[in-house]
Design a protein around this nucleic acid. Sequence first.
DNA 1: CTTTTTTCGGGACACGCTGTTCAGTTATGA
DNA 2: TCATAACTGAACAGCGTGTCCCGAAAAAAG
Lengths: 200, 200
Amino acid sequence: MFGNRERESPDRRVRRTRRAIRQALVDLILIKGYEAVTVTDLINRADVGRSTFYAHFADKEEVLFSSLDELAELLRLVPATRSGTLLSFSLPLFQHLHEQRRLARALLGRRGAAVVRLRGEQIMAAVVRDELMAALPSEIPPPASLDMIVTCVTGAFMALMRRWADGELVATPAEMDAAFRAVVIPGLDAILTTRRSHPM
Amino acid sequence: MFGNRERESPDRRVRRTRRAIRQALVDLILIKGYEAVTVTDLINRADVGRSTFYAHFADKEEVLFSSLDELAELLRLVPATRSGTLLSFSLPLFQHLHEQRRLARALLGRRGAAVVRLRGEQIMAAVVRDELMAALPSEIPPPASLDMIVTCVTGAFMALMRRWADGELVATPAEMDAAFRAVVIPGLDAILTTRRSHPM
DNA sequence: CTTTTTTCGGGACACGCTGTTCAGTTATGA
DNA sequence: TCATAACTGAACAGCGTGTCCCGAAAAAAG
Protein backbone atom coordinates (compact mmCIF):
# COMPACT_ATOMS: atom_id res chain seq x y z
CA MET A 1 0.00 0.00 0.00
CA PHE A 2 2.93 2.25 0.75
CA GLY A 3 6.63 1.56 1.09
CA ASN A 4 8.41 0.96 4.36
CA ARG A 5 9.72 4.49 4.35
CA GLU A 6 6.69 6.70 4.50
CA ARG A 7 8.71 9.72 5.54
CA GLU A 8 6.96 12.82 4.25
CA SER A 9 3.97 10.87 3.11
CA PRO A 10 2.47 12.56 0.09
CA ASP A 11 -1.00 12.17 1.50
CA ARG A 12 -1.92 14.39 4.40
CA ARG A 13 -4.52 11.88 5.61
CA VAL A 14 -1.86 9.26 6.07
CA ARG A 15 0.31 11.54 8.18
CA ARG A 16 -2.65 12.63 10.26
CA THR A 17 -3.77 9.09 10.93
CA ARG A 18 -0.37 7.76 11.82
CA ARG A 19 0.40 10.69 14.05
CA ALA A 20 -2.91 10.34 15.85
CA ILE A 21 -2.32 6.65 16.51
CA ARG A 22 1.24 7.19 17.72
CA GLN A 23 0.11 9.98 20.01
CA ALA A 24 -2.70 7.82 21.33
CA LEU A 25 -0.21 5.11 22.22
CA VAL A 26 1.98 7.51 24.18
CA ASP A 27 -1.04 8.89 26.01
CA LEU A 28 -2.40 5.45 26.83
CA ILE A 29 0.95 4.12 28.01
CA LEU A 30 1.12 6.96 30.51
CA ILE A 31 -2.45 6.22 31.61
CA LYS A 32 -2.52 2.45 31.90
CA GLY A 33 0.86 1.08 30.86
CA TYR A 34 1.91 -0.51 27.59
CA GLU A 35 0.82 -4.05 28.35
CA ALA A 36 -2.72 -2.97 29.16
CA VAL A 37 -3.19 -0.94 25.99
CA THR A 38 -5.35 -2.69 23.40
CA VAL A 39 -5.76 -1.95 19.73
CA THR A 40 -9.36 -1.11 20.49
CA ASP A 41 -8.14 1.50 22.96
CA LEU A 42 -5.88 2.97 20.33
CA ILE A 43 -8.52 3.34 17.63
CA ASN A 44 -10.96 4.83 20.10
CA ARG A 45 -8.52 7.42 21.35
CA ALA A 46 -7.08 8.18 17.93
CA ASP A 47 -10.63 8.16 16.57
CA VAL A 48 -9.88 6.06 13.52
CA GLY A 49 -11.64 3.05 12.10
CA ARG A 50 -10.47 -0.43 12.91
CA SER A 51 -9.62 -1.25 9.31
CA THR A 52 -7.74 2.03 9.05
CA PHE A 53 -5.51 1.02 11.92
CA TYR A 54 -4.60 -2.29 10.35
CA ALA A 55 -3.94 -0.55 7.05
CA HIS A 56 -1.06 1.25 8.75
CA PHE A 57 0.22 -1.06 11.47
CA ALA A 58 0.30 -4.80 11.88
CA ASP A 59 -0.26 -4.60 15.63
CA LYS A 60 0.34 -2.36 18.60
CA GLU A 61 4.00 -3.28 18.77
CA GLU A 62 4.55 -1.80 15.36
CA VAL A 63 3.11 1.47 16.61
CA LEU A 64 5.61 1.29 19.44
CA PHE A 65 8.52 0.83 17.07
CA SER A 66 7.22 3.68 14.98
CA SER A 67 7.24 5.94 18.03
CA LEU A 68 10.65 4.61 18.84
CA ASP A 69 11.98 6.21 15.71
CA GLU A 70 11.09 9.58 17.20
CA LEU A 71 13.34 8.84 20.16
CA ALA A 72 16.07 7.46 17.96
CA GLU A 73 16.01 10.70 16.03
CA LEU A 74 16.60 12.55 19.27
CA LEU A 75 19.56 10.37 20.08
CA ARG A 76 21.01 11.01 16.68
CA LEU A 77 21.07 14.68 17.65
CA VAL A 78 23.30 13.92 20.59
CA PRO A 79 26.69 15.04 19.33
CA ALA A 80 29.11 12.18 18.97
CA THR A 81 31.49 13.99 21.26
CA ARG A 82 34.86 12.36 21.03
CA SER A 83 36.39 14.87 23.36
CA GLY A 84 38.60 12.34 25.04
CA THR A 85 36.26 12.11 28.01
CA LEU A 86 34.87 8.71 28.81
CA LEU A 87 31.10 8.21 28.40
CA SER A 88 30.61 11.73 27.15
CA PHE A 89 27.16 10.87 25.83
CA SER A 90 25.81 10.85 29.36
CA LEU A 91 25.08 14.51 30.02
CA PRO A 92 23.66 15.42 26.58
CA LEU A 93 21.48 12.34 26.70
CA PHE A 94 20.06 13.23 30.08
CA GLN A 95 19.43 16.74 28.82
CA HIS A 96 17.60 15.53 25.76
CA LEU A 97 15.45 13.16 27.75
CA HIS A 98 14.64 15.98 30.12
CA GLU A 99 13.30 18.09 27.25
CA GLN A 100 11.19 15.21 25.98
CA ARG A 101 10.11 13.91 29.36
CA ARG A 102 6.66 12.85 28.33
CA LEU A 103 7.82 10.69 25.46
CA ALA A 104 10.82 9.44 27.41
CA ARG A 105 8.67 8.40 30.31
CA ALA A 106 6.19 6.56 28.12
CA LEU A 107 8.91 4.67 26.28
CA LEU A 108 11.62 4.17 28.90
CA GLY A 109 9.62 4.22 32.12
CA ARG A 110 8.30 1.30 34.08
CA ARG A 111 4.95 1.41 32.35
CA GLY A 112 6.63 1.31 28.97
CA ALA A 113 7.45 -1.80 27.00
CA ALA A 114 10.29 -4.03 28.08
CA VAL A 115 11.34 -4.45 24.47
CA VAL A 116 12.13 -0.73 24.22
CA ARG A 117 14.44 -0.81 27.20
CA LEU A 118 16.07 -3.95 25.85
CA ARG A 119 16.73 -2.31 22.50
CA GLY A 120 18.01 0.84 24.15
CA GLU A 121 20.35 -1.25 26.22
CA GLN A 122 21.75 -2.93 23.13
CA ILE A 123 22.35 0.34 21.32
CA MET A 124 24.02 1.86 24.33
CA ALA A 125 26.10 -1.25 24.91
CA ALA A 126 27.56 -0.92 21.43
CA VAL A 127 28.47 2.72 22.09
CA VAL A 128 30.05 1.99 25.46
CA ARG A 129 31.97 -0.93 24.07
CA ASP A 130 33.43 1.16 21.27
CA GLU A 131 34.43 3.89 23.69
CA LEU A 132 36.19 1.47 25.99
CA MET A 133 38.02 -0.21 23.14
CA ALA A 134 39.18 3.17 21.87
CA ALA A 135 40.30 4.28 25.32
CA LEU A 136 42.23 1.09 25.90
CA PRO A 137 45.95 1.47 25.29
CA SER A 138 46.65 -0.64 22.24
CA GLU A 139 49.41 -2.62 23.87
CA ILE A 140 46.92 -3.93 26.38
CA PRO A 141 44.66 -6.63 25.01
CA PRO A 142 40.96 -6.17 25.75
CA PRO A 143 40.12 -7.98 28.95
CA ALA A 144 38.02 -11.09 28.69
CA SER A 145 35.59 -9.39 31.01
CA LEU A 146 34.94 -6.55 28.59
CA ASP A 147 31.38 -7.72 27.99
CA MET A 148 30.72 -7.80 31.70
CA ILE A 149 32.14 -4.35 32.21
CA VAL A 150 30.06 -2.97 29.36
CA THR A 151 27.01 -4.65 30.87
CA CYS A 152 27.65 -3.03 34.23
CA VAL A 153 27.97 0.44 32.77
CA THR A 154 24.97 0.07 30.50
CA GLY A 155 22.85 -1.46 33.22
CA ALA A 156 23.66 1.34 35.62
CA PHE A 157 22.81 3.98 33.06
CA MET A 158 19.58 2.35 31.96
CA ALA A 159 18.43 1.95 35.55
CA LEU A 160 19.13 5.63 36.17
CA MET A 161 17.19 6.63 33.10
CA ARG A 162 14.22 4.46 33.97
CA ARG A 163 13.84 5.64 37.55
CA TRP A 164 14.43 9.24 36.50
CA ALA A 165 11.85 9.04 33.74
CA ASP A 166 9.38 7.59 36.20
CA GLY A 167 9.95 10.42 38.65
CA GLU A 168 11.36 8.10 41.29
CA LEU A 169 14.56 10.06 41.15
CA VAL A 170 14.34 13.83 41.29
CA ALA A 171 17.43 15.54 39.96
CA THR A 172 18.75 17.78 37.23
CA PRO A 173 20.45 16.29 34.19
CA ALA A 174 23.75 17.54 35.57
CA GLU A 175 23.17 15.78 38.88
CA MET A 176 22.23 12.54 37.16
CA ASP A 177 25.36 12.73 35.06
CA ALA A 178 27.51 13.48 38.09
CA ALA A 179 26.17 10.52 40.07
CA PHE A 180 26.62 8.16 37.14
CA ARG A 181 30.19 9.23 36.58
CA ALA A 182 31.03 9.19 40.27
CA VAL A 183 30.11 5.51 40.46
CA VAL A 184 31.54 4.09 37.26
CA ILE A 185 34.41 6.32 36.13
CA PRO A 186 36.89 5.44 38.92
CA GLY A 187 36.40 1.75 38.25
CA LEU A 188 36.79 2.16 34.51
CA ASP A 189 39.92 4.27 34.94
CA ALA A 190 41.45 1.60 37.13
CA ILE A 191 40.58 -1.12 34.65
CA LEU A 192 41.88 0.80 31.67
CA THR A 193 45.23 1.64 33.24
CA THR A 194 45.96 -1.60 35.06
CA ARG A 195 48.42 -3.86 33.32
CA ARG A 196 46.69 -7.16 33.93
CA SER A 197 47.53 -7.07 37.59
CA HIS A 198 44.42 -9.03 38.50
CA PRO A 199 43.46 -11.76 36.01
CA MET A 200 39.94 -11.29 34.68
CA MET B 1 -10.71 -23.05 49.81
CA PHE B 2 -7.37 -22.95 51.59
CA GLY B 3 -5.47 -20.15 53.23
CA ASN B 4 -2.72 -18.12 51.66
CA ARG B 5 -0.13 -20.25 53.29
CA GLU B 6 -0.55 -23.70 51.88
CA ARG B 7 2.91 -24.78 52.98
CA GLU B 8 2.87 -28.49 53.66
CA SER B 9 -0.61 -28.89 52.33
CA PRO B 10 -2.37 -31.72 54.10
CA ASP B 11 -3.70 -33.05 50.83
CA ARG B 12 -1.23 -34.65 48.48
CA ARG B 13 -3.41 -33.82 45.46
CA VAL B 14 -3.09 -30.13 46.17
CA ARG B 15 0.69 -30.28 46.34
CA ARG B 16 0.86 -32.36 43.18
CA THR B 17 -1.36 -29.99 41.26
CA ARG B 18 0.32 -26.80 42.36
CA ARG B 19 3.77 -28.23 41.72
CA ALA B 20 2.78 -29.39 38.26
CA ILE B 21 1.42 -25.98 37.33
CA ARG B 22 4.45 -24.14 38.67
CA GLN B 23 6.78 -26.47 36.82
CA ALA B 24 4.75 -26.07 33.65
CA LEU B 25 5.17 -22.31 33.88
CA VAL B 26 8.94 -22.55 34.21
CA ASP B 27 9.11 -24.95 31.28
CA LEU B 28 6.90 -22.82 29.09
CA ILE B 29 8.74 -19.60 29.90
CA LEU B 30 11.95 -21.20 28.69
CA ILE B 31 10.17 -22.41 25.54
CA LYS B 32 8.16 -19.39 24.46
CA GLY B 33 8.67 -16.60 26.98
CA TYR B 34 6.43 -15.48 29.80
CA GLU B 35 4.25 -13.12 27.80
CA ALA B 36 3.33 -15.78 25.28
CA VAL B 37 2.32 -18.37 27.87
CA THR B 38 -1.45 -18.76 28.19
CA VAL B 39 -3.46 -20.37 30.93
CA THR B 40 -4.56 -22.91 28.36
CA ASP B 41 -0.90 -23.77 27.77
CA LEU B 42 -0.37 -24.22 31.48
CA ILE B 43 -3.29 -26.58 32.04
CA ASN B 44 -2.35 -28.63 29.00
CA ARG B 45 1.26 -29.02 30.05
CA ALA B 46 0.45 -29.56 33.71
CA ASP B 47 -2.36 -31.87 32.62
CA VAL B 48 -4.97 -30.46 34.97
CA GLY B 49 -8.55 -29.42 34.35
CA ARG B 50 -9.34 -25.80 33.67
CA SER B 51 -11.47 -25.44 36.76
CA THR B 52 -8.72 -27.00 38.82
CA PHE B 53 -6.32 -24.30 37.73
CA TYR B 54 -8.63 -21.52 38.76
CA ALA B 55 -9.26 -23.22 42.07
CA HIS B 56 -5.59 -22.65 42.89
CA PHE B 57 -4.53 -19.51 41.06
CA ALA B 58 -6.37 -16.39 39.99
CA ASP B 59 -4.29 -16.04 36.82
CA LYS B 60 -0.91 -16.86 35.38
CA GLU B 61 0.73 -14.02 37.24
CA GLU B 62 -0.16 -15.61 40.53
CA VAL B 63 1.63 -18.77 39.40
CA LEU B 64 4.63 -16.59 38.68
CA PHE B 65 4.60 -15.11 42.16
CA SER B 66 4.22 -18.57 43.60
CA SER B 67 7.35 -19.67 41.75
CA LEU B 68 9.00 -16.49 42.89
CA ASP B 69 8.75 -17.67 46.46
CA GLU B 70 11.04 -20.54 45.53
CA LEU B 71 13.67 -18.05 44.45
CA ALA B 72 13.14 -15.87 47.48
CA GLU B 73 13.77 -18.92 49.62
CA LEU B 74 17.09 -19.36 47.86
CA LEU B 75 18.03 -15.77 48.52
CA ARG B 76 17.20 -16.17 52.15
CA LEU B 77 19.90 -18.84 52.25
CA VAL B 78 22.49 -16.34 51.12
CA PRO B 79 24.33 -15.53 54.34
CA ALA B 80 23.90 -11.94 55.40
CA THR B 81 27.63 -11.52 55.50
CA ARG B 82 28.45 -8.37 57.42
CA SER B 83 32.14 -8.98 57.08
CA GLY B 84 32.97 -5.35 56.51
CA THR B 85 33.31 -5.88 52.78
CA LEU B 86 31.10 -3.80 50.58
CA LEU B 87 28.42 -5.62 48.53
CA SER B 88 29.38 -8.96 49.96
CA PHE B 89 26.15 -10.54 48.73
CA SER B 90 27.47 -10.52 45.20
CA LEU B 91 29.53 -13.70 45.05
CA PRO B 92 27.20 -15.97 47.04
CA LEU B 93 24.27 -14.75 44.99
CA PHE B 94 26.01 -15.53 41.71
CA GLN B 95 26.88 -18.94 43.07
CA HIS B 96 23.32 -19.69 44.05
CA LEU B 97 21.97 -18.58 40.72
CA HIS B 98 24.53 -20.76 39.03
CA GLU B 99 23.28 -23.81 40.89
CA GLN B 100 19.68 -23.02 39.98
CA ARG B 101 20.34 -21.87 36.46
CA ARG B 102 17.16 -23.22 34.96
CA LEU B 103 14.87 -21.48 37.41
CA ALA B 104 17.00 -18.36 37.44
CA ARG B 105 16.95 -18.12 33.68
CA ALA B 106 13.19 -18.53 33.49
CA LEU B 107 12.56 -15.89 36.12
CA LEU B 108 15.37 -13.39 35.60
CA GLY B 109 16.18 -13.88 31.93
CA ARG B 110 14.95 -11.87 29.00
CA ARG B 111 12.08 -14.25 28.36
CA GLY B 112 10.95 -13.93 31.96
CA ALA B 113 8.47 -11.45 33.29
CA ALA B 114 9.48 -7.83 33.68
CA VAL B 115 7.67 -7.68 37.01
CA VAL B 116 10.07 -10.21 38.48
CA ARG B 117 13.13 -8.20 37.56
CA LEU B 118 11.47 -5.09 38.88
CA ARG B 119 10.77 -6.73 42.21
CA GLY B 120 14.29 -8.14 42.40
CA GLU B 121 15.66 -4.71 41.74
CA GLN B 122 13.65 -3.24 44.60
CA ILE B 123 14.76 -5.89 47.06
CA MET B 124 18.37 -5.50 46.07
CA ALA B 125 18.15 -1.72 46.20
CA ALA B 126 17.08 -1.90 49.82
CA VAL B 127 20.04 -4.14 50.64
CA VAL B 128 22.54 -1.94 48.84
CA ARG B 129 21.15 1.17 50.44
CA ASP B 130 21.50 -0.26 53.92
CA GLU B 131 25.06 -1.33 53.22
CA LEU B 132 26.06 2.08 51.99
CA MET B 133 24.44 3.83 54.92
CA ALA B 134 26.24 1.52 57.31
CA ALA B 135 29.58 2.04 55.58
CA LEU B 136 29.19 5.79 55.57
CA PRO B 137 31.16 7.48 58.37
CA SER B 138 28.54 8.90 60.66
CA GLU B 139 30.00 12.38 60.62
CA ILE B 140 29.33 12.56 56.88
CA PRO B 141 25.71 13.12 55.99
CA PRO B 142 24.31 10.83 53.33
CA PRO B 143 24.72 12.46 49.95
CA ALA B 144 21.59 13.70 48.25
CA SER B 145 22.57 11.47 45.40
CA LEU B 146 22.35 8.32 47.49
CA ASP B 147 19.31 7.09 45.57
CA MET B 148 21.11 7.59 42.30
CA ILE B 149 24.18 5.76 43.50
CA VAL B 150 22.09 2.86 44.75
CA THR B 151 20.30 2.79 41.41
CA CYS B 152 23.60 2.59 39.54
CA VAL B 153 24.87 -0.29 41.61
CA THR B 154 21.60 -2.18 41.48
CA GLY B 155 21.15 -1.60 37.79
CA ALA B 156 24.64 -2.84 37.04
CA PHE B 157 24.11 -5.99 39.07
CA MET B 158 20.69 -6.76 37.63
CA ALA B 159 21.98 -6.31 34.09
CA LEU B 160 24.83 -8.70 34.82
CA MET B 161 22.45 -11.27 36.24
CA ARG B 162 20.04 -11.05 33.33
CA ARG B 163 22.65 -11.43 30.61
CA TRP B 164 24.40 -14.17 32.53
CA ALA B 165 21.17 -16.07 33.08
CA ASP B 166 20.42 -15.79 29.38
CA GLY B 167 23.80 -17.18 28.46
CA GLU B 168 24.86 -13.97 26.76
CA LEU B 169 27.72 -13.76 29.21
CA VAL B 170 29.80 -16.84 29.78
CA ALA B 171 31.73 -16.72 33.03
CA THR B 172 32.12 -18.36 36.40
CA PRO B 173 30.42 -16.85 39.44
CA ALA B 174 33.83 -15.67 40.63
CA GLU B 175 34.48 -13.90 37.35
CA MET B 176 31.08 -12.23 37.42
CA ASP B 177 31.70 -11.05 40.93
CA ALA B 178 35.18 -9.77 40.06
CA ALA B 179 33.92 -7.75 37.09
CA PHE B 180 31.09 -6.26 39.10
CA ARG B 181 33.38 -5.19 41.90
CA ALA B 182 36.04 -3.89 39.55
CA VAL B 183 33.56 -1.45 38.05
CA VAL B 184 31.65 -0.19 41.08
CA ILE B 185 33.85 -0.56 44.15
CA PRO B 186 36.42 2.13 43.27
CA GLY B 187 33.67 4.66 42.70
CA LEU B 188 31.90 3.73 45.90
CA ASP B 189 35.11 3.93 47.90
CA ALA B 190 35.76 7.39 46.56
CA ILE B 191 32.25 8.53 47.35
CA LEU B 192 32.31 7.07 50.85
CA THR B 193 35.61 8.67 51.81
CA THR B 194 35.28 12.03 50.11
CA ARG B 195 34.39 14.88 52.41
CA ARG B 196 31.87 16.62 50.18
CA SER B 197 34.60 17.85 47.86
CA HIS B 198 32.23 17.82 44.91
CA PRO B 199 28.68 18.89 45.70
CA MET B 200 26.14 16.30 44.73
C1' DC C 1 -13.78 21.96 -12.46
C1' DT C 2 -14.21 16.89 -13.42
C1' DT C 3 -12.29 12.31 -13.06
C1' DT C 4 -9.51 8.90 -11.01
C1' DT C 5 -7.04 7.15 -7.21
C1' DT C 6 -6.33 6.52 -2.49
C1' DT C 7 -7.68 6.49 2.12
C1' DC C 8 -11.18 6.30 5.70
C1' DG C 9 -15.25 4.52 8.32
C1' DG C 10 -17.97 1.12 10.36
C1' DG C 11 -20.11 -3.04 10.56
C1' DA C 12 -19.64 -8.03 10.51
C1' DC C 13 -17.07 -12.10 11.07
C1' DA C 14 -14.21 -16.21 12.82
C1' DC C 15 -10.88 -17.14 16.01
C1' DG C 16 -8.49 -17.66 20.39
C1' DC C 17 -8.02 -16.81 25.30
C1' DT C 18 -10.18 -15.75 29.74
C1' DG C 19 -12.60 -16.72 33.87
C1' DT C 20 -16.96 -18.93 35.77
C1' DT C 21 -20.20 -22.55 36.64
C1' DC C 22 -21.92 -27.12 37.39
C1' DA C 23 -22.74 -31.97 37.55
C1' DG C 24 -20.23 -36.12 37.94
C1' DT C 25 -15.92 -38.78 39.21
C1' DT C 26 -11.87 -39.87 41.98
C1' DA C 27 -8.60 -39.63 45.61
C1' DT C 28 -7.53 -38.60 50.45
C1' DG C 29 -7.43 -38.63 55.49
C1' DA C 30 -9.82 -40.05 59.56
C1' DT D 1 -15.32 -47.84 55.37
C1' DC D 2 -17.02 -43.24 54.62
C1' DA D 3 -17.54 -38.34 54.53
C1' DT D 4 -15.09 -34.83 52.57
C1' DA D 5 -12.39 -32.43 49.62
C1' DA D 6 -10.20 -32.12 45.17
C1' DC D 7 -10.30 -33.04 40.32
C1' DT D 8 -12.52 -33.59 35.51
C1' DG D 9 -14.66 -32.05 31.43
C1' DA D 10 -17.63 -29.46 29.11
C1' DA D 11 -20.25 -25.54 28.37
C1' DC D 12 -20.72 -20.55 28.54
C1' DA D 13 -20.41 -15.38 28.08
C1' DG D 14 -17.20 -11.79 27.48
C1' DC D 15 -13.55 -9.49 25.26
C1' DG D 16 -9.71 -8.54 22.17
C1' DT D 17 -7.73 -9.70 17.64
C1' DG D 18 -7.11 -9.49 12.83
C1' DT D 19 -9.64 -9.73 8.26
C1' DC D 20 -12.98 -8.47 4.82
C1' DC D 21 -16.12 -5.63 2.31
C1' DC D 22 -18.43 -1.63 0.55
C1' DG D 23 -19.93 3.10 0.49
C1' DA D 24 -18.24 7.78 1.61
C1' DA D 25 -14.83 11.28 1.62
C1' DA D 26 -10.59 13.33 0.60
C1' DA D 27 -6.60 14.00 -2.28
C1' DA D 28 -4.23 13.89 -6.66
C1' DA D 29 -4.34 13.92 -11.61
C1' DG D 30 -6.07 15.62 -15.84
